[in-house]
């Protein structure tokens, strides 16, 4: 689909995506309840910090970090891997391929359209974070800080989206990519900063983490939201994050196109 037609269709796609998100609001609330791991980790690490700070993290820092992690997860989550895998197996991907619009754009707008509802959950949580942990540990205190966070959260969303596309597309090559998705989720939980800050890893392991994409999906935007980095350091990390965005964008698109040639459109 041409860029002009895509842009013209985008408001309608987003509006209808939002209507669908509203129709599935109960499902979304259940999903939100299922993503309360940072709140559990907050309780755990706060208890640890009661005996003294862990690195730079006291109780207030842990509160700011894990409430930010909860918010970032709400804003960057994606279910495209499961959707693609399901649609490949059922053959319903055929209906998307018949339309003169990139299925990847359609998936992206479906996920993006749900964000306004998630913001409604995120804002009060951020408010609580500011109240409990203090503004300087919960949100950026300057406009520039907000700008860096905006770049960080956009990059995190794109990395998550492209990894989902990649994993979902593997179902066009393998009989099922469900197990790979489970492996991905475990790696994400452990390596991204979702269960504990990446800086808690020993130095050698941390270097490995810097080279993997997971840290840029969660840890970096959380750190930018909680003001953990000076501007220079933040820009360097954002550059690494956007290199991942570009790389995964190319790889997932190539794999998607090659996968489509194998699509068998089963089932009717």
């Amino acid at each position: 689909m041409s860029l002009r037609t895509s842009l013209k269709a985008l408001p309608t796609l987003l509006r209808i995506g939002f209507s669908e998100a509203v129709a599935y609001r109960a499902e979304m609330i259940i999903w939100v309840l299922a993503t309360t791991m940072p709140l559990i980790m907050l309780a755990l690490w706060s208890a640890v910090a009661r005996g003294g700070p862990v690195g730079r993290f006291g109780q207030a820092e842990f509160t700011g970090y894990f409430l930010a992690a909860f918010c970032v997860r709400q804003m960057t989550s994606s279910w495209v891997a499961w959707l693609v895998s399901y649609e490949v197996k059922q053959g319903t991907l055929a209906m998307r391929l018949l339309r003169p619009i990139s299925p990847l754009l359609a998936y992206a707008t479906e996920v993006l359209a749900g964000i306004p509802l998630r913001v409604a959950i995120v804002l009060p949580v951020l408010g609580i974070s500011v109240w409990v942990a203090g503004a300087e540990r919960a949100v950026p205190t300057s406009l520039g800080g907000w700008g860096l966070f905006a770049l960080g959260i956009a990059g995190a969303w794109l990395i998550t989206f492209y990894l989902n596309v990649l994993l979902g597309t593997l179902s066009l090559f393998l009989e099922s990519s469900q197990k790979l998705m489970e492996v991905y989720m475990v790696l994400f939980f452990v390596c991204s900063g979702y269960m504990f800050p990446v800086e808690f890893f020993p130095p050698g392991v941390r270097t490995v983490m810097e080279w993997l994409p997971f840290r840029y999906q969660m840890g970096l935007p959380v750190e930018l939201l909680t003001g953990a980095h000076a501007a220079k350091e933040a820009w360097a990390l954002l550059a690494a994050q956007w290199a991942w965005v570009a790389g995964l964008g190319v790889v997932s698109t190539v794999v998607w196109r090659r996968g489509l040639a194998r699509f068998a459109a089963f089932g009717g």
């Binding site: 309608t12 796609l13 209808i16 209507s19 129709a23 319903t92 009717g268």
Partner: peptide, 22 residues
């Protein structure tokens, strides 16, 4: 197979197709 959006009225699918097919 269906292209209609399952939980929305068909009018929404019509509108979606209008936008997609320009």
């Amino acid at each position: 197979k269906q292209q209609l959006l399952w939980d929305l009225p068909p009018s929404e699918t019509f509108e979606l197709n209008r936008a997609i097919y320009d």
